[in-house]
Write a protein that binds this DNA or RNA. Structure first.
Lengths: 198, 198
DNA sequence: CGAATTCCGTACCGATTGGAATGGAATCTT
DNA sequence: AAGATTCCATTCCAATCGGTACGGAATTCG
């Protein structure tokens, strides 16, 4: 009941995600955000609450959209394939032609003032929980005999995630897709035996 | 001639560097900056020019201070030792007890609005030139026979720097020194034969 | 000592920040 | 059609942003 909204809330959120991805949390004002979303500030406020709530929604959308390679990678059959999928996904996502360079989870709010703290904390948690899921997947690989019994899942997961985050930083520094894939390949060269590079 | 300044300009710059390191360029206001430096805004403005000039000075000081491991690493005798020194330095600097966690070159302004562009550009250039110097060092290693003739110095350098930047991100996510050193060790395990871990 | 010079502190500048109040327009249920 | 409800647009809010104008305090040179 009542007057229906004149904008598509999903499309508006998509725009918001793009802008946050490109400029970070504190790097965008509500005014700029509203303009990019094609709506006015009150509409934004009514539909999404405040700025940090909008950011949370955008981060959620990012996780299930551009960064869904993370979840899908965990379904690969071997630890090696998981690692490959993560790094390959990181390369592709941080250099996708349509979108901003880099990773929202890294760019968003690495450093922040007090007002940027909510986004900062969300992203720290986002990065750490990602690493944790990879670790759990690698633990399963050890249990299954896919990884050697003496392998350290946490250490391997942290290594892969570190390279992935480093790739995001390098993408923000202007490196291209091929160069980043080279880096990913280098990181994988030392990985356990069954190399299956495409 | 004239009234002498009542604060130590070197110490003030040190404070500024610390704050930029911790909160990034846009994350600190001039007011907060001046307070941390123990001086007033007009004094700051008179001594350092505007905010981006102060940031430039702070970045300079960072390069020659906490991040001097980068330059010193290049003087190591072998490529392997260079790589080790870089990663070890990254670990130590991003987790030094006294200072902020992470790396000024990474934290400062990965993502930025228009007003943060100067810092953003400075840091992109800083990261890229760091990688370039490592590449040149590795090229020398190839020339000297320290690295195999078919090694790709650029690729190796980018890999090492990617891991180093990734370490900085992880430090900002709260990982401790030992955990980061584990990551560095893992990254080096695949490195060429002569492992000389301490 | 006195003039010139430089620095410090306060108080303030216009612009922009995240957020909200208000009122009219559009749609639902009754 | 009437009332209730929801949305949109303008306008405004106190606070803060980076950056200054100005007057008094401290120092050196003459």
């Amino acid at each position: 009941m009542g007057r229906p909204r004149e904008f598509d809330i999903d499309e508006a959120l998509e725009r918001a995600m793009q802008v946050f991805w490109e400029r970070g949390y504190e790097g965008v004002s509500l005014t700029c955000l509203a303009k990019a979303m094609g709506i006015t500030k009150p509409s934004l406020y009514a539909a999404f609450g405040d700025k940090k709530e909008l950011f949370r929604r955008a981060l959620e959308r990012y996780t299930e959209g551009p960064a869904d390679y993370g979840m899908r990678a965990l379904e690969e059959p071997t630890a090696r394939a998981v690692a490959e999928a993560i790094l390959r996904g990181a390369v592709r996502t941080t250099t996708r032609p349509g979108g901003p360079e880099g990773c929202l989870g890294v760019q968003g709010a690495l450093a922040s003032s007090e007002v940027g703290r909510p986004a900062h904390d969300m992203l720290v948690e986002w990065r750490n929980s990602s690493a944790l899921r990879v670790e759990e997947r690698f633990q399963r690989a050890v249990d299954e005999g896919d990884l050697p019994r003496d392998a350290d899942p946490r250490r391997l997961a942290r290594y892969i995630m570190t390279v992935a985050f480093g790739i995001a930083v390098q993408a923000a520094s202007g490196l291209g897709r091929d160069e980043l894939q080279d880096i990913a390949d280098t990181a994988l060269e030392c990985w356990l035996p069954n190399r299956t590079r495409d």
